[in-house]
Design a protein around this nucleic acid. Sequence first.
DNA 1: AGTGTGTGTCACATATGTGTCAAGCAGCCG
DNA 2: CGGCTGCTTGACACATATGTGACACACACT
Lengths: 228, 228
Amino acid sequence: MKPFVLIAEDEKAVAELLRYNLEREGYETTIAPDGDEAMIQLDERVPDLVLLDWMLPKVPGIEVCRRIRSKPETANLPVIMLTARTEEADRIRGLDTGADDYVTKPFSTTELMARVRAVLRRIRPALIEDKVMVGDIVVDRTTHTVMRNGEDIHLGPTEFRLLDYFIQHPGRVFSREQLLDGVWGSDVYVEARTVDVHVGRLRKALMSKGGDDPIRTVRSAGYSLRTN
Amino acid sequence: MKPFVLIAEDEKAVAELLRYNLEREGYETTIAPDGDEAMIQLDERVPDLVLLDWMLPKVPGIEVCRRIRSKPETANLPVIMLTARTEEADRIRGLDTGADDYVTKPFSTTELMARVRAVLRRIRPALIEDKVMVGDIVVDRTTHTVMRNGEDIHLGPTEFRLLDYFIQHPGRVFSREQLLDGVWGSDVYVEARTVDVHVGRLRKALMSKGGDDPIRTVRSAGYSLRTN
DNA sequence: AGTGTGTGTCACATATGTGTCAAGCAGCCG
DNA sequence: CGGCTGCTTGACACATATGTGACACACACT
């Protein structure tokens, strides 16, 4: 699953440059040429990161950022502000609105790419790293290995994918439907109850060498991975 | 220190394919999409090897090669030319551009990797490890020999390449498709299940003188070489 | 041609994982 | 305290993935 980046930038040349560089580094991208369009696209599909121009037609960047923060489903979506000005006031306001980082134009693409990686690593490590650690659980995608407190844990394919999915957003609660979509795929039809069974199996496996239950059941909502 | 390879190739797909394969074999890479860029990158950091496309935008490959030879610091830098046609290959040989080897497109990646190793071994023997050791298994590429706990182990050519491939990235899980691509070559068509048979043969050979199974089966994902 | 080695494919045996169900529990609320 | 609802879990039939011996064929070498 590639990281998906929304580029909200009205200058076409800049937007295309960003798209080119991001796609070369393995990101999926979409471009919104103005604030309205950005909001629409945010509703359609929540990206993993937003590159947000400060001066955006229709709805200014700072306002888009504020709206992103005010909606629960995008409340901690990473945002990098692109600004032409270097004045202190803008920086402060930008960071104040909840941008995770800002870059002043003109920027070096390598620097921007580095910041994109840095922000994503901080907020969504599982998207970038092969090896992810949450609490005392370590998942290594390259070796298909799960460890807890140094002990190897054997998981079946489905349990592995399930854990991998949870680890994308530690703490976040997923409904059975979301899990079916994300882990099984939207095309297969299985009973929602099946998720329960697999969560049970994952729990058993993860607790087989001792330790607390790392998965939280949220009654009538779904399941989530404990973060601490 | 990893060998550093400059890939001067304008077709993005080809360049990425090369990068992927080279990095998988433990090389560090950089891509130059045209002749100018190649010259710039050559100035920035002298690589250990150049893969040079014959038809390169701005400055053609053959000219880049000539300039490489004319500068003292890169005068005997290994160069492998990539050409689309056999006639061009003949011309390269005839023109005495100073390329150390040439490969005609379309090429088999395994063949190209073998040539890269061969050229580097000839020019920079210290850069290439001929003897690799993982756990109690020692693979010697020069003598095509495998030993385990001091005992000689006989492997057929395919089993040898397979083990050699695994040993590039111990622990990492390879799918049957990846193994077919990397060991058999992307151009041949064989059944994916054939991999199973060869893994079985490799296992039998490696365990013939005792010892545990050094290959791990990862259900519904592939195989990997055990690291410990 | 004759021999030996290696290869890819198949068929069948085995191992492992999967989805569903149903009985039993656990939380919640009047 | 019931009673409702939603969650957990063991059993099980079934589905899939992997291991492996046999075999025919392709070479290389003599």
